[in-house]
Write a protein that binds this DNA or RNA. Sequence first.
DNA 1: CGGCATCCAATTCGATACTG
DNA 2: CAGTATCGAATTGGATGCCG
Lengths: 123, 123
Amino acid sequence: MDKELLDMDACSAHHLAIRDTMDVLSGKWKIRLIGSLSFGKKRFMELIGSIDGIAAKMLSKELQELELNGLVKRTVLNTKPVTVEYELTEYGYSLKPIIKEMASWGMQHRERVIRAMSVKEKV
Amino acid sequence: MDKELLDMDACSAHHLAIRDTMDVLSGKWKIRLIGSLSFGKKRFMELIGSIDGIAAKMLSKELQELELNGLVKRTVLNTKPVTVEYELTEYGYSLKPIIKEMASWGMQHRERVIRAMSVKEKV
DNA sequence: CGGCATCCAATTCGATACTG
DNA sequence: CAGTATCGAATTGGATGCCG
């Protein structure tokens, strides 16, 4: 058995898999969006409120992309004025382990991240 | 106990944690870069070869940011011409669970991702 | 080899204004 | 409320040339 070769194969498969995942999650807000929706249904305005800094245009755009990929379901309710609800599909929920690891990492390394960011801002 | 309030706190902490993680991993290539380095040391040209589509300029830039954040260590070897090695620090390795989940998700959903991407390209 | 500098094109992002 | 339209700014990316 050629260990080197096996490693190369593993590396390359790993790599393609990560690329595929990144394709779906590309964009500045998608991961945070999914993180927010992983707590349940939310309306457009609720999402704007819960995701600090996002503009309506970007929210709209990234939601559309997530919907196209089948990760998010959009429901228009018959109210006046219109209400629209967004929620994760089952497919979307399958991303939860990733989101969970990201939240967990962020909590464990919060201090260091913030310190590093504040250094950067001085530049 | 106010369940609603507890949920809100959990949600907001979760959210800040994800935002911190995304701050560190922001940029089109960082996650794939870390994925590639998680298999061990690599030189600049090896990274260009292993990360399909990246330009030298972007590789250089994102490596610098990762180095600034302490996730990657850069070592210049005394060869002629120069050889430079990049490797994850211990802090960088702490991201491995995230990378692992991303690779795992990508492998499980590869077909669906590719199908969705090919539909998009027709537009 | 491992970069940085420059120029330029393409894409992404954000603020504001407006609509049903 | 839930968007779309539009414009300008910022980021990204490629090509080329230069340097130690």
